[in-house]
Amino acid sequence: MAVSQAKNASLPLMNLVRTSAFPILHQLRLEERLLRTSTENWCIINEGTMESSIVMGVSGKLNELVETRFVLRDGVPVIRRFTGGGTVVVGKDTIFVTFICNKNAVPGVQPYPKPIMSWTSKLYSKSLSGLVDFSLRENDYVIGDRKFGGNAQSITKARWLHHTSFLWNYDPRDMKYLKHPPRAPSYRSMRTHSEFLCTMNGFLSSSSEFTERTVASVGDYFSLRQVDLSAVAEPAASEAEFFHSTRLLTEDELKASLALEREGSEPSISVVCA
């Protein structure tokens, strides 16, 4: 494994993977594998993905969340991830930050959704200090009253994962792929996507400024060791048969959802993994 020397050995060790344009499907599968098979702490920062994609939570209903007619017309990939959380459109201007930690890695943080969110919001509050009016609202990261970061979590017996998609920027035309969700945070107040969302590029000089500030904040809690993506992108021999639940939805599934949506029925989506 290609690494740089860890600093501040009095803190727990965290492996830091920094990359860009890493396909989000591959990233989510890597996160799932590291959560399930590794016993180390990880922070993955990926600046952008290669193509625009829609990412859904494990239990999200396709017909309620995605405009499948536009997705089919434009050939946009739809990914069902292994974690919960909402449905998002991601692309080259999305910054992904994920923490994968042992349950005792952060003193005082219990492996439950609210304590984890409280800790991550504290971390990002420091990294964005003096730049934006940052806060945590109903599981979203917001600037003022507009969302710029969506979160997903997965918690196992011994470990937890917290994944965030930050909007550095986005193409407003991509919002046509998303429906107004049937369950939305109360602070959204029925606002459209363009009214509800905001981007980070109007507040920071560059995306690298945000990632550098975030790395510095993580360094308050962990001794960081840089790891090359190439060292972990492919599973080890002992992990070669790891079963990923993160997958692409098939064209047949999208067509079936569209047909049932037009009939006013709820689609039944299979969970066969690729």
Results as ranks from 00 to 15, higher is better:
P185N: 07
L16Q: 03
H244F: 15
T94L: 02
A233I: 10
I45G: 00
D140L: 04
E138M: 09
E31C: 03
V97G: 00
S245N: 10
F96D: 01
P185M: 09
E64S: 13
I100M: 07
N15I: 00
F22E: 01
Q27W: 02
P12M: 10
V109Y: 04
G150H: 01
S208H: 12
L249E: 01
E31W: 02
T39N: 14
S268E: 14
H180Q: 14
N15H: 11
L25W: 06
R247L: 07
R33L: 04
E253Q: 15
A152C: 09
A237H: 10
E32P: 05
L35N: 02
F222N: 02
M200T: 08
S127N: 07
K103N: 10
A256C: 13
D228R: 02
V218Q: 06
A274T: 15
E138P: 06
M50A: 13
S59R: 14
G202Q: 14
F210P: 05
D171V: 06
S238H: 12
P107N: 08
F242G: 03
F210M: 15
P182C: 03
K61T: 13
H193K: 11
C273N: 13
G144P: 05
I116N: 02
K255H: 13
P182H: 04
A216K: 15
A2D: 11
I155H: 06
G219Y: 05
V227Q: 00
R137V: 12
M56W: 01
P115R: 02
K176W: 06
T214A: 15
N63D: 15
A274F: 11
S10W: 09
K122A: 15
E253V: 11
R262C: 12
T246R: 04
S245V: 14
V218N: 00
G48C: 05
P23N: 05
F99W: 14
K61V: 15
